[in-house]
C-alpha cells in the first residue's frame, strides 16, 4: 500500500517537473535568443561600433534621422531652441569658394580619444569598451565642462524638468547628455534609431556596424571608398565617418 502511494507520488512529482520545465523552458531559451548580449556580460573592445554617413545620399531638408532620434529618446522640445536638447542635428554646408552644397547629420562622433571624457572631473563622461561615449547621469554634477571641450558641439544640458521619459533612455534635469548610439538597441543586436529610420525610408545614407570587423559592411565600404573625420586635425579617431565631404 505504502509502495503504491510512493509510486503515485513519484509519478506525480515527475509529471509536475516535466510540466514545469515545459512551461518555463521557452521563457528561458527564448530570452537567451532575444538578448544577444546578456546584461551581466560586459562589452569588450573586440567590437568598435561606428557609423558611416554618405552625404551624397543625405538630402537637404530631410529630418527622418532627427525625428527618429527625438522619438526614441523622448526629446520633446519646449519650443526653446537655444536650450532644447538635440542629440542629432542636420547641418547645411555651402562651400564659400564654389557654392557646392552638402547636407549631413551631426551627432556625438564617439571619438576614440574623447575630449569630453578627458575633462570630466568625476568621470561621468566615459567611453565604453566598444567605443560608445556616454554620460553616467548618476555622477554627472552638471558642470558643463564637457560641453566646453566637445569639438562637435554634440552635447546638450537638460535645462528644465522633464516628463514622459522613456524607460530605455532616462534623462536627468541638471545633467549633460548626448547621442548614446542607442546602446539600449545596440546591446540587443539592434541598430540606432536614426540609421533605422534612414534605411526604412530608403535613403540609405547611414550605415552602422563594427569598425573592428573587416567583414562588416561599414568596414568594407570604408576600405573601398574611404571616409573622412570631421576635424581630423585633432586626431581623435572618431567612430563616425563621412563620405562626400
Amino acid at each position: 500500500m505504502s509502495d503504491q502511494i510512493n509510486d503515485s507520488r513519484r509519478q506525480f512529482l515527475s509529471k509536475a517537473a516535466i510540466a514545469g520545465s515545459v512551461t518555463i523552458a521557452p521563457g528561458v531559451f527564448l530570452h537567451q535568443t532575444a538578448q544577444a548580449k546578456p546584461d551581466e556580460k560586459a562589452v569588450t573592445s573586440a567590437t568598435r561600433w561606428g557609423m558611416l554617413i554618405d552625404t551624397d545620399k543625405c538630402s537637404k531638408g530631410c529630418t527622418d534621422c532627427v525625428d527618429a532620434c527625438n522619438q526614441e529618446h523622448a526629446l520633446t522640445g519646449f519650443d526653446r531652441p537655444e536650450t532644447d536638447a538635440q542629440y542629432i542635428r542636420k547641418v547645411s554646408l555651402v562651400e564659400k569658394q564654389t557654392g557646392h552644397e552638402i547636407s549631413l547629420p551631426l551627432m556625438c562622433q564617439h571619438c576614440e580619444k574623447p575630449p569630453c571624457v578627458d575633462v570630466c572631473p568625476t568621470g561621468a563622461s566615459m567611453k565604453r569598451e566598444d567605443g560608445i561615449v556616454l554620460v553616467d547621469k548618476h555622477i554627472c554634477i552638471g558642470c558643463r565642462y564637457c560641453m566646453m571641450a566637445c569639438p562637435y558641439k554634440a552635447r546638450s544640458f537638460v535645462h528644465e524638468t522633464i516628463e514622459n521619459q522613456t524607460l530605455s533612455a532616462p534623462r536627468g534635469k541638471g545633467t549633460v547628455e548626448s547621442c548614446t548610439m542607442c546602446t539600449h538597441r545596440v546591446d540587443k543586436d539592434g541598430i540606432p534609431a536614426c540609421v533605422e529610420a534612414c534605411t526604412d525610408e530608403n535613403h540609405n545614407a547611414m550605415t552602422f556596424g563594427d569598425l573592428n570587423d573587416p567583414e562588416s559592411t561599414i568596414s568594407k565600404e570604408l576600405k573601398k571608398h574611404g571616409g573622412k573625420q570631421i576635424r581630423a586635425d585633432l586626431q581623435l579617431n572618431t567612430g563616425v565617418r563621412y563620405q562626400g565631404l
Partner: peptide, 10 residues
C-alpha cells in the same frame, strides 16, 4: 571653408 547653418546654431 564652408558656410554652416543648422537648427543648433552652427
Amino acid at each position: 571653408g564652408y558656410e554652416v547653418s543648422s537648427t543648433f546654431f552652427d
